[in-house]
Design a protein around this nucleic acid. Structure first.
Lengths: 231, 231
DNA sequence: ACCTGAACACCGTTCAAGT
DNA sequence: ACCTGAACACCGTTCAAGT
């Protein structure tokens, strides 16, 4: 529930201001709280006003995803190991998603629905091809790479992204409490991992390690690939 | 839209039959089509009847996830390389999710909310600990492993799991058509990968490769870990 | 071109009541 | 214990109308 700051009283709407406000709203209260009607009220306008700028809710969501992915600072094209460059590309995406963790879930399905998303995919794809993967494998790895980044953000221990910020602590405590009731004889490893599953002492290390698993997998599988072919 | 097969006329409801029918409904028409009211109508009962068996929709969803994860055939505990065993464990999950791809998205958030999910997590966790990862890293990798499997199912090219089965082909064609309009000079790699992004010639190979990336990453990072400690 | 207003179909859920 | 019935608050969206 954000401070109901009405925007500048009576200027015109546009795709950009609608998407930008939607992004703020979802940042604060979560994706599920982002409804046409709430957003319209927040913008001081009738729900139907939004339908002038977006065909339907799906288009609005795509617009929000576009806005978000537009914030990713694509690293300059360089030479050197393509897998190293992929690592940097994914880090750039990660930085943006970490700034808007509640929107990560949305982006998951919208990488191919806007220019910034397509550009990101293009870069990943081209780097993986440069690394020697054939077209279907490069395509698969590109998608999997982006998904992995999204998942890391969504699964950060203790983040609880599906509730509003002020309910987070309560939800974490409840989750911990439930895990603490588990019988330690049937769930020994789990019982010993409750802390690690419900809080993140070192977020930097968490994200680095998660990204490294994927990158290490790519490096390893590259060796088993035939030499690069042009497509 | 499934053939509206009313169930046996007037027997009692139970958590199990409700969850089972919900699973069938979501299998056929997708998760978004699984509403309390539709499910109730399908079961020949008032919406409110379901609230006797489940506290709210979230609990119903958790029940469906439990039903689904209960179908996973956990491999017998064995000795041998723990990472090999993890591979088998993940393959078992993959088999179940491939049989119910539209439910994969649901399962993503419910691994820790039912016995079968907890057992799966426990096994993964314990194998990763056995492989030499410290508790926080083992916990992270366990979660990441399960997420990776889910993502592979969700992202299978051409699956289009968010629409009903009979709309799938139309949606794939539309997606292809949109990608085909992209300028090939700014999206060269993407333009060359349209087939790979919209259809899966060899699903078996797709899933095997996707799983291998993760497993290879685990093997690689294990070397950089200190020796196993007990916790 | 841009927005309002009223209406529709659908949703999850509460609360009281039936058997 | 198990289910119904009526009601409420909220959704996305259509359609006609205003300026």
């Amino acid at each position: 529930v954000p401070p109901n700051q009405k925007r500048a009283p009576r200027d015109r709407l546009s795709r950009e201001v609608v998407a930008a406000r939607a992004l703020e709203l979802a940042d604060a209260d979560g994706l599920d709280a982002l409804t046409i009607r709430r957003l319209a009220a927040d913008l001081g306008v009738t729900p139907m006003a939004l339908y002038w700028h977006f065909a339907d809710k799906g288009a609005l969501m795509a617009g929000v995803a576009e806005q978000l992915l537009g914030e990713v600072e694509l690293p300059a094209a360089a030479d050197g190991d393509p897998i190293d460059q992929l690592h940097e590309l994914l880090s750039a995406l990660l930085r943006t998603l970490r700034a808007h963790p509640r929107l990560a879930r949305l982006v998951q399905t919208e990488f191919l629905s806007s220019d910034p998303g397509l550009l990101l995919t293009e870069r990943a794809l081209s780097l993986l091809h440069g690394a020697g993967f054939d077209p279907p494998r490069a395509a698969q790895l590109a998608v999997q790479a982006l998904s992995t980044i999204v998942d890391l953000v969504l699964a950060e221990p203790g983040a609880e992204l599906d509730v509003a910020a002020d309910e987070r602590d309560a939800k974490v405590r409840e989750k911990r409490a439930r895990l603490l009731t588990l019988p330690t004889d049937t769930y020994p490893a789990l019982s010993a991992s409750i802390d690690a599953l419900t809080s993140c002492l070192d977020p930097g290390g968490y994200f680095e390690f998660g990204l490294d698993v994927f990158i290490a997998g790519c490096r390893e599988l590259r060796r088993q690939q035939p030499a690069a072919v042009s497509w």
